[in-house]
Amino acid sequence: MTNAASPASAHSQSAKRPTLWSAGKAFQAKWLVTLPPTLFLLAFFLAPALIVVGASFREPGEFGGLAPLENLAGLSLEAYRFLLGDVIYLEIFARSFLVAAATTLICIVLAYPLAWLIAKSPAKRRDLLVLLVILPFASNFLVRIYAWIMILGPANLLYTPVAVIVGMVYVHLPFMILPLYTNLEKHDPALLEAAQDLGASAWTRFWRITIPLSLPGLFSGAVLVFIPVLGMFAVPELLGGTGDLLIGNLIKEQFLDNRDWPLGAALSIILTLLVLALAGLAAWAARRGFAGTEAVS
């Protein structure tokens, strides 16, 4: 059947060739698959986010929540003005970013050798080791934090910044190990052999080959640790002292304790914008720095 124009051949091959009809089907199928998640995200992510944006420009209600809005003149920048006017908030933001950065750094230092060890184990044992990494998720997060209270209490570390960092690292370590492991596992062992063959010592091979090739994994891990730590309020609340408040606690406090929704909303918006800016900056740096590494990971 070489004559593509013949109606008989067009009919018999309609399943293989993209006709108008089958293209229409493909289009329908695409929507059928993507529509539910799209609707879900619109309803439960975008809409609430917009509500929070709106709330940040409103006045707090007399008994909490939001004051009724009669017209657009009722919108105000009061919440933002208040936040920017008090240096304590800047301090909490700075402390939060510091805790997040420290947690990320410690996670990298702890996770790298572990991920490397798993990646280098025999294939059979790897699955078991990965399972052990994610096993803590099988028990409740709060229960595990309470366990730390019992460990840190006798050590006289409870309610200190150290306790907060320990808790943060403990909770987020798997999120660093897993992307790192996924990356390291894919490294071609021939590259290390080639580097050795060309005169590189073990240390040089690590710095010049393994580390640069694992940057995408490190980057994913850092994002997965840094951002959740910024918003985490349970760990500082349970393990930290009164001076260890982080943004997460502050936001939670505005909504649940002070019932100042506009202030809480404004804090959330500022945090979100800062994180987005940071992620954008990191992604830009990553694109410049990872040239070539995508080929392996």
Binding site: D188, E193, A194, G199, A200, I209, P212, A291, T293
Partner: peptide, 27 residues
């Protein structure tokens, strides 16, 4: 291997993907 005055050309080439051609040859 790193101290032997000989080199190997691997079947898979084993070029360093994160280095340019010049970077590979300079290694």
């Amino acid at each position: 291997p790193e101290r032997r005055p000989l080199h190997t050309v691997f079947q898979s080439y084993a070029l360093f993907p994160h280095m340019t051609v010049a970077g590979n040859v300079a290694f």
